[in-house]
Design a protein around this nucleic acid. Structure first.
Lengths: 229, 229
DNA sequence: ATTACTTAGTGTAGTAAATACACACTATAT
DNA sequence: ATATAGTGTGTATTTACTACACTAAGTAAT
C-alpha cells in the first residue's frame, strides 16, 4: 500500500449475531461491555476491523477471541451505516451471523479487554442492547429465517449426530411456528441429504430415537435443485 | 462528534449495480473512469461515502449525480472488503443494486470529475471492469435473480403501464430462461397485484396488447403470503 | 377488399407436491 | 405390571405445477 486515500475520520467494525441451540432453545451470544461508550451495557460481540485483515477473517477472529472456537459457519448479512449510530464518530458496522454447535458446554472466554463477560441469552428474552444492536439482531434473525427455508443451515446448530425431532425443533424455533411431524420427516428425508445411522440416542428415559447425520456429499450433488420449506 | 476513534487509514465507498430494461434487453450502467487508479477503465458507478451521510443517502446521491434521477429503487446487497481490493489503501465497498425505468431516453450526465462518461451495456456483453467490480456485478445479478422470485421488483424496471409480455420478458432475462406464456399469465394474475387498464399499447404494427399496472395497495395487503416464481 | 403477417390471448388434462390428520410402538422408571 | 413420554408411520384431499396449440385482433402491403 503505497499511497493513502484522503482521510474521512471514519472506520469500520464487525458485529456478530451468534446463534446457538441448546436445551430446546434458540440463544444468542452477548457480551457485557467493559469500555465506554455504553460501559456495562449488553451488546453483540464485535470489534474494529484491522487494516490487514479481510472482513471475513475479522469476523472469525472476533469469535475466536470470544469463544475459543474456529471453524464456525458465518455469513455477512448487512452493513449498518447511519451517521449517528456510534456516539464517538463515524463507524459503520458490517454484520455477520454465525451458527454454533453448543453441546458439551464449551467455555466462553472473554479474554479481550472490551468485554467483562460473554453469555448466552434466549432470543425471546433479550436485555436492552448498546448502539443499534437491537436492530442488527432483528435483521440477523430475519435473515436466518429466510435462509433456513432454502439452505441447509439448521445442521450447523446441531451436533454431528442428531435426531429428527431435534432438527424439527430448530426449524420450529427459527421459523417461529409449529410443524407437522409426519410431513416434516417425509419432506426432510425426501431431499436425500440425511444419512440414517445404526445408532440410537442415549441417556433418555423413554424410547430412544434414531440418529442421523447431514451428508455434505449428497447435498453438493443437489446442485441447482432447491431445498424448500 | 466529539472524539474520534483511532485511525486505521481506512475508508469506505459505495458501488452501484444499476440495472435497466430497454428494447427487450437487460442492461447495466457503467462509467469510464477519468482518474487513477484504473484511469480509462470501465467500472461500476461508485464513490466515497461522505462523513455526514448515511449509506443509503450516499447511494442515492451517487446515482443522482450520474443520472439526474431521484426516487430510484435501491437496496444494499453486500460489502466487499478484501485487503487488496483497492491498490491505494484499505477501502471497503458497500454494494447496492438499483432498478431503473429506462424508457424515453433519460440523459446520463456524468458531470462528476471522476467519470468521463456513463453508458448502458447489455449484461451479456460486459467489458473488463476495474477493481473487483466484475465480482460485484455478478453478486448483484445473483441477488436480483433470487429477489425477483419472491418480491415484486420486476415492476421497478418497467414503465408505470406495461404489457404482460413486457413483464414476462423481464422475468425471462433476469432468470435467464424461457417461461411458458399461458402459465406465466395465469400465475402472475393469480397474485392479484396487477390492475388491468382500459387502455391498449400504442404505436405497434400489430395487435395492441392490454396495459396493466402494478397495484401497490393490493400488494401491501398480501402481507405474509409469498409471491413465488 | 383481400391477403399476409405478427403478436395477443385463452383452457384443459395430467402430474407432482402440500396439507391435514390419529394411533400403535418402544424403552425406561417405579 | 403399569404409567409415561416421545418415536415412528400412511392415506386421502387439496392445491400448485407443467405441458401443450390454436384462434382473435390489429397492421401493412397489394
Amino acid at each position: 500500500m503505497k499511497e493513502v486515500l484522503p482521510q474521512f475520520n471514519s472506520t469500520f467494525s464487525i458485529d456478530c449475531v451468534v446463534f446457538g441451540f441448546d436445551e430446546g432453545e434458540l440463544k444468542v451470544l452477548l457480551i457485557e461491555r467493559n469500555e465506554e461508550p455504553f460501559k456495562d451495557w449488553c451488546a453483540l460481540p464485535g470489534n474494529l476491523v484491522r487494516v490487514d485483515e479481510s472482513l471475513d477473517q475479522s469476523a472469525l477472529r472476533i469469535l475466536k477471541e470470544l469463544t475459543g472456537l474456529g471453524d464456525i459457519f458465518m455469513e455477512q448479512f448487512y452493513t449498518f451505516g447511519n451517521v449517528d449510530r456510534h456516539p464517538q464518530g463515524r463507524v459503520i458496522s458490517i454484520a455477520y451471523y454465525a451458527l454454533l454447535r453448543l453441546g458439551g458446554d464449551k467455555a466462553l472466554k472473554p479474554i479481550t479487554s472490551y468485554a467483562k463477560k460473554a453469555f448466552w441469552k434466549n432470543i425471546s428474552d433479550l436485555p436492552k442492547l448498546a448502539f443499534d444492536h437491537q436492530m442488527i439482531f432483528e435483521k440477523g434473525l430475519e435473515k436466518i429465517k429466510r435462509r433456513i427455508k432454502h439452505q441447509p443451515i439448521a445442521f450447523e446448530l446441531l451436533p454431528e449426530k442428531f435426531t429428527l425431532t431435534q432438527l424439527q425443533n430448530v426449524y420450529e424455533l427459527i421459523m417461529g411456528k409449529k410443524l407437522d411431524k409426519r410431513n416434516f420427516r417425509k419432506k426432510m428425508l425426501s431431499f436425500g441429504v440425511l444419512k440414517e445411522l445404526d445408532e440410537k440416542q442415549k441417556g433418555v428415559s423413554f424410547r430412544a430415537a434414531t440418529l442421523y447425520k447431514f451428508d455434505r456429499r449428497k447435498y453438493a450433488k443437489l446442485f441447482g435443485k432447491e431445498i424448500s420449506f
